[in-house]
């Protein structure tokens, strides 16, 4: 089955025309309402992701060396190799699947917001009305039926590609070589599985450094989350167990002293 092999989505920012067709396709497949936002004086349609916008074309305006330039980025869930959201979730509502998708099981979600606080990329958004988290799930229902995600399906510029992670990696590596001639800083993002988050299944071909596109240069699972989940929580559970055992032991011991001496409590040094 195609779903068992690892898949990936690839956004080639050099090909993206920011037509935002992918945003519309996403809303259509997910049945999400439009977010009505005021005009802010720039071309980017929405300020940020929202509980009803899982996919956003970011349009960064840069003025450099007397030249104006736009940098586009398809911003959405990155489907991290080591997803901080899943680690933070106390309900196992976020699950890393074998095919690479970080899926979201809404029934389990209690809307606590720990995924929102801890996500390496600040992606999930809590729907305050429904008390549920929201984010892209890479159209895993479509993938399971042998289709590609709706955004990739609709992209007219071939800027959003979808396939096995292996294929996508090959395409990305070849493409970045070509781009390097025009863009010396051209590079891949999320492809390397040895980065701080185990690579991503939403990968990018960038024309410049990640920070130019608003992506962290060295993405990692936050230290606070590691302390919380890998040290503090297990230690707490251990202490709970240890304290309970001590009490159990003490009660047994009580029963034993109880037999030896009844009452009497003068045991400070008599002087």
């Amino acid at each position: 089955m195609a779903t068992m092999t690892e898949i990936a989505m690839l956004h080639d920012v050099s090909k993206c025309t920011a037509c935002r067709g992918c945003m519309v396709a996403c809303k259509q497949w997910k049945n999400l309402p439009a977010d009505m936002t005021p005009f802010e004086g720039n071309y980017q349609s929405h300020e940020d992701l929202s509980p009803s916008t899982y996919n956003l074309i970011k349009m960064k305006e840069t003025y450099e060396n007397g030249n104006f330039r736009w940098d586009f980025l398809k911003f959405q869930c990155m489907h991290c190799g080591i997803p901080a959201c899943a680690k933070a979730c106390p309900e196992e509502a976020l699950v890393k699947q074998a095919n690479g998708v970080v899926s979201f099981i809404e029934d389990r979600c209690v809307g606590c917001g720990y995924c929102e606080t801890n996500c390496t990329f600040d992606v999930p958004r809590i729907d305050a009305v429904r008390k549920k988290s929201t984010k892209c799930n890479l159209c895993e229902d479509r993938i399971a039926n042998g289709m590609v995600p709706s955004c990739a399906q609709t992209c007219t510029a071939d800027a959003i590609l979808f396939g096995t992670r292996e294929e996508m990696t090959e395409i990305a590596k070849a493409r970045v070589q070509v781009l390097k001639e025009q863009y010396p800083n051209a590079q891949l993002y999320g492809v390397d599985k040895n980065d701080g988050i185990g690579g991503t299944n939403m990968m990018y071909i960038l024309t410049d450094r990640p920070s130019v596109f608003g992506l962290p240069e060295n993405p990692k699972v936050s230290t606070s989350l590691t302390i919380w989940k890998d040290y503090a929580q297990p230690a707490g559970k251990f202490l709970f167990g240890a304290a309970a055992m001590v009490v159990a032991g003490a009660l047994v011991n009580n029963a034993m002293i109880g037999k030896k001496n009844k009452g009497g409590h003068d045991h400070e040094q008599n002087q």
């Binding site: 720990y114 606080t117 801890n118 936050s222 606070s224 989350l225 302390i227 919380w228 040290y231 503090a232 929580q233 230690a235 707490g236 559970k237 202490l239 709970f240 240890a242 304290a243 309970a244 001590v246 009490v247 003490a250 009660l251 009580n254 002293i257 109880g258 409590h265 045991h267």
Partner: peptide
């Protein structure tokens, strides 16, 4: 983000402390 581990450490420590305290005040005969 750092408040979550701190809350958790506080919780772990106080578990041990309070169990001990309750035991000594109602559990131990002396």
């Amino acid at each position: 983000m750092y408040m979550y581990p701190i809350h958790n450490i506080g919780l772990g420590l106080c578990t041990a402390v309070i169990i001990g305290h309750i035991y000594l005040s109602i559990g131990h005969p002396n």
